[in-house]
Design a protein around this nucleic acid. Structure first.
Lengths: 136, 136
DNA sequence: ATACATGCAAACTTTTTGCGTCCCC
DNA sequence: GGGGACGCAAAAAGTTTGCATGTAT
């Protein structure tokens, strides 16, 4: 189970999250800022950044680092992968978790993309940090 | 086979590439700049950026977009995956291509990391761009 | 000869931060 | 009441670009 999320609620935080969830897409901070501003005209961009930072640190949302683009954010709660167009930079979700070897074909079938490359990135804790963690 | 690479050679470009290859790591533009400057004291940071851009566009090197960090570059020519420490941000190579399901355990064994997450990203061309490609 | 690369510096974009005030718990 | 969150604005960080000049092909 995930740790309990214990962040204070604020109008701004709620609406930021709400708008991110509502959008099925992967907006950048200031695209989201534009959305949110329609409901909270006085919110500041700094607040949007601060909240996106906090929400992704807490694991509520995901932060997508994409080549040559600014940071994007994803409110999707379920497991899914992303597929990015190398031409226009558009990013779509790949709904079900694809199985390894024939995953490219399967992804192509489900998204309509021409799949060119599959990148896998692992996240973890390196040996040095594991040691530090044990001590601290 | 890959297309022929036909970029003009320059002292600067050669040394940038050379230093990137020599480093086994994944430096940011200005870490690389520091290195290169030891051999070409008058090179400018702009030149480093320009060349990294060109080299990655030509597929000679790889550009790594990593969460919350600046862009990093990878001169490794062979297929490999990356693993990142969620605590210190360190990025290591995962030498052999890992097979799907038990890949996490396998990666852990080979890198000493505690593997927390596995992210897959697909690159391709979206339906709209495929259509445009056919026309243009 | 000419198209491309460079150095320099300024500009730009994106993200972070300091500060005084406000609000949630 | 107190610590976190906010708005605002300034600044930092990272990257790109215009321009005059130099260089590879």
């Amino acid at each position: 189970m995930a740790d309990q999320i214990r962040i204070r609620r604020s109008k701004q935080r709620e609406i930021i999250l709400e708008e991110l969830m509502k959008l099925g897409s992967h907006p950048s901070a200031d695209e989201l800022y534009d959305r949110v501003r329609k409901r909270l005209p006085h919110i500041s961009l700094g607040t949007v950044y601060r909240n996106l930072e906090i929400l992704s640190r807490e694991g509520v949302i995901r932060r997508l680092a994409l080549d040559g683009q600014r940071m994007r954010f994803d409110g999707g709660r379920d497991e899914h992968q992303h597929i990015r167009c190398i031409r226009c930079g558009r990013v779509d979700d790949v709904p079900a978790p694809a199985a390894a070897s024939e995953s490219e074909r399967s992804v192509a079938r489900r998204t309509g993309y021409l799949v060119i490359e599959r990148r896998v990135q692992y996240l973890g804790m390196c040996p040095a940090c594991r040691r530090k963690d044990r001590v601290s």
